[in-house]
């Protein structure tokens, strides 16, 4: 019997929303990037002026550099921790359920609350490190503090992904390895890791694209400061657009962000062979 497929019309609301709130604004942002607009009156087309300005804008280049740094350091910091906790939490230990729930807590807090919390905790006069290292006030340290706070918030989420995936690894693989006399480390390296590789890809894409568009934490925690030490590209766009009211130029930066984000996810997918995903579950 032929399966009855739902009519294509069912997809209209989803496509409609996507077109109205994602595609249309994107198209308009591209248009605005070729205009000069102070937020008042009508945008005035100014050719490629914004784009040549972007090419010469040292501040924007520095912001791209900081964004890449934030992205790479975030990934390097979050992945091993999330992977290890996730695999551990998938195990049968007695303390697991309680500790996992505690590790999960940061994910339940809102981003604004987390940023305010850490800001108060690291206050240079009244915080835990008062008088010592200036985690938010030292331009050389501040960006790592930002990475730490973002990681603190999102590691539980990635942990959850790894935990779920590790649970799904067939026990028979481990049993076979045990019979062959594999060590714990050996099982982790030769069974768990290869089995988790697609989760690793998914989690990495989320982390990388997430870091690229990180915004709220940085805005509240440091506002891009001290000086411009943590002014990453999305924040640079926001400050240009909503403090300087240079909407045209801010749109140019927005286009760059869209292109970078899309290119990044496509690149990771290609490079990791995400499309060719297969499962080694029995029966499939």
């Amino acid at each position: 019997m032929r399966t009855q497929r739902p009519s294509g019309w069912y997809a209209v609301p989803a496509y409609g929303f996507f077109a109205l709130f994602a595609v249309l604004p994107m198209v308009l942002v591209v248009y605005l990037s070729f205009t000069s607009w102070q937020g008042l009156g009508t945008p005035v087309p100014n050719g490629t002026a914004n784009w040549s300005r972007l090419i010469a804008d040292g501040e924007a280049h520095a912001a791209v550099g900081r964004t890449v740094l934030l992205m790479v350091v975030s990934w390097l910091f979050q992945t091993p921790i999330a992977l290890l906790i996730g695999v551990w939490a998938a195990g049968p230990q007695r303390s697991r359920a309680v500790l996992s729930s505690i590790f999960f807590l940061p994910l339940l807090l809102s981003t604004a609350a987390i940023a305010l919390l850490w800001q108060a905790l690291l206050d240079p006069n009244f915080g835990i490190a008062a008088g010592g290292t200036q985690f938010l006030g030292d331009p050389d340290i501040a960006i790592y503090t930002v990475v730490f706070v973002i990681s603190w918030q999102y590691i539980p989420f990635h942990t959850l992904m790894y935990q779920g995936a590790a649970r799904a690894i067939p026990a028979s693989l481990y049993e076979a390895a045990t019979i062959d006399g594999a060590s714990r480390l050996g099982k982790f390296l030769h069974i768990t890791l290869p089995q988790l590789r697609y989760t690793l890809v998914t989690s990495s894409v989320l982390m990388l694209v997430g870091s690229l568009t990180t915004f709220d934490t940085v805005l509240i925690l440091t506002g891009g400061g001290p000086g411009t030490a943590t002014r990453i590209l999305p924040l640079h766009m926001y400050i240009t657009g909503f403090s300087g009211f240079e909407m045209g130029y801010a749109s140019t930066i927005a286009v760059v962000l869209v292109v970078l984000g899309t290119a990044l996810s496509v690149a990771v997918m290609r490079w990791s062979g995400f499309r060719a995903m297969s499962s080694q579950q029995e029966g499939s």
């Binding site: 709130f21 607009w37 945008p43 568009t213 709220d216």
Partner: peptide, 18 residues
């Protein structure tokens, strides 16, 4: 992603008012 959406909505407001 939120600032991007904000930019987009501002762009819409611009064109609507134009």
């Amino acid at each position: 992603m939120r600032p991007l959406i904000a930019m987009g909505l501002v762009a819409m407001a611009a064109v609507v008012s134009a």
